[in-house]
Write a protein that binds this DNA or RNA. Structure first.
Lengths: 242, 242
DNA sequence: ACCTGAACACCGTTCAAGT
DNA sequence: ACCTGAACACCGTTCAAGT
């Protein structure tokens, strides 16, 4: 496992936290308490029900506490025993979606390949649940942090210094965010194609997946060019100062 | 003015429309009617009030009909004389924001420069009003369509064929969408920096603006590489078939 | 400890009635 | 033609009371 001691503090989904200071903290947190009535719901149950609610035809990817309670067959206020408010509910859902996404190990290919695998897996996990809007509201989900750290360690293993890694991560992250938005927009409209071409007689369509693969290549190739340029200009500056 | 006869049908903010089939249709549409009580509100007034409401500390960039009515000093139902529902309100606001954004003329620089100007202006206009969430709900705003057409004509004037232009547009659009999301996330949190680096002793910060400029370069350079590669592989394929 | 009914302060939108 | 009050079916969350 690559150690990530970049010390980079990325803002990934709204919070500003040092990566070091993040504890696991998942599941009902009174697991050690052992006293009182045992919980009747699991986080997994809640997340599954929430995803079902959010994908209802007229929900627009949103989750209402009351609809969630209905789905769970439980009074509304019961949910507040598991989650302090709606933002935390969105974070719970986001964590549930992202938990199965694996960060590839170093022996699984070049750093470019591993980065592509990671991004592809993360996007697939999010896109599977269509129009979930959990990102702006989800706050700083711990699973998102885990993937961020994974991405940074991949970039680090590719020989990027902390500043380069931060630039690269930010660009990849921004593109990913846009892709997720595109996914949500097109899945909300029940279409698969992002762009349709009508050149002369034939019509070509670009699907969301094709856009993702192409776009990932674009960002990756662009990064190589920009970082290469940054390095040579840095070297030149150093030569001048000698 | 460059004519855009690409025939490309981009999906820009949720709708799937042929660009040709879009009429201007703005302002109160009964401008020719002349009978009955004259309207007491203008679209500009409504948009301005909506933006004020959306930037209230606890609004999270959202607009409520009732808060908007309060701001306008008018009963709630009056708004429905100007807008059929909330989605249309968001579209009205989005149009208001995007209307001042100019598509650069061909003599204003290389196509790369003009594309950067266009993207920069669009992002600035959107970022100015911080956390407006109008994109997923705004549907197909006509001003967004105008800018899309402008972007396509710039790409076309750069010598890109329709398929290339569609790929390029989709990549640029996706990145822009992500950037807007980043802007909204960071402005909601009242921070300016997207990434903070703590390498050894000194801390470097990457602002949203810096991320935008860097990211635009990345996508642009990556596009050049990818399109170049596509062309040579296409030529090779043609040579093989001869 | 975990559960939950009632209540409060909100929503968007329909519908019928006003001028 | 434009305006609007009342009503309907929703929200998230607090608070006090249950076991």
């Amino acid at each position: 496992v690559v150690r990530s001691d970049l010390g980079v503090v990325p803002v990934c989904a709204g919070g500003c936290l040092t990566l070091a200071g993040i504890a696991a903290q998942q599941g009902p947190k009174r697991a050690t308490g052992r006293r009182g009535r045992p919980p009747s719901l699991t986080h997994a149950q809640i997340a599954a029900a929430a995803l079902k609610v959010s994908s209802a035809p007229d929900a627009r990817g949103e989750i209402s506490m009351r609809a969630l309670a209905r789905e769970l067959g439980v009074p509304v206020m019961t949910i507040y025993n598991y989650v302090p408010n709606k933002d935390a509910l969105y974070a719970l859902v986001l964590n549930h979606i992202l938990r199965p996404v694996r960060v590839p190990d170093p022996e699984e290919g070049s750093w470019e390949d591993r980065m592509r695998q990671l991004q592809r897996a993360a996007r697939a996990a999010l896109a599977e649940h269509g129009a979930v809007t959990s990102f702006r509201r989800g706050g700083t989900a711990t699973e998102a942090m885990r993937l961020t750290e994974g991405a940074l360690s991949i970039l680090s293993s590719g020989g990027l210094d902390p500043e380069e890694a931060a630039l690269a991560f930010a660009s990849l992250f921004t593109f990913m965010l846009g892709q997720i938005e595109v996914d949500a927009m097109t899945s909300a409209a029940d279409r698969d194609s992002v762009v349709a071409l009508e050149a002369g007689t034939r019509t070509t369509r670009l699907s969301r997946d094709e856009l993702f693969e192409f776009g990932f290549d674009v960002v990756m190739e662009g990064l190589k060019v920009k970082l290469q340029r940054k390095r040579t200009s840095g070297r030149r500056a150093r030569q001048r100062s000698n």
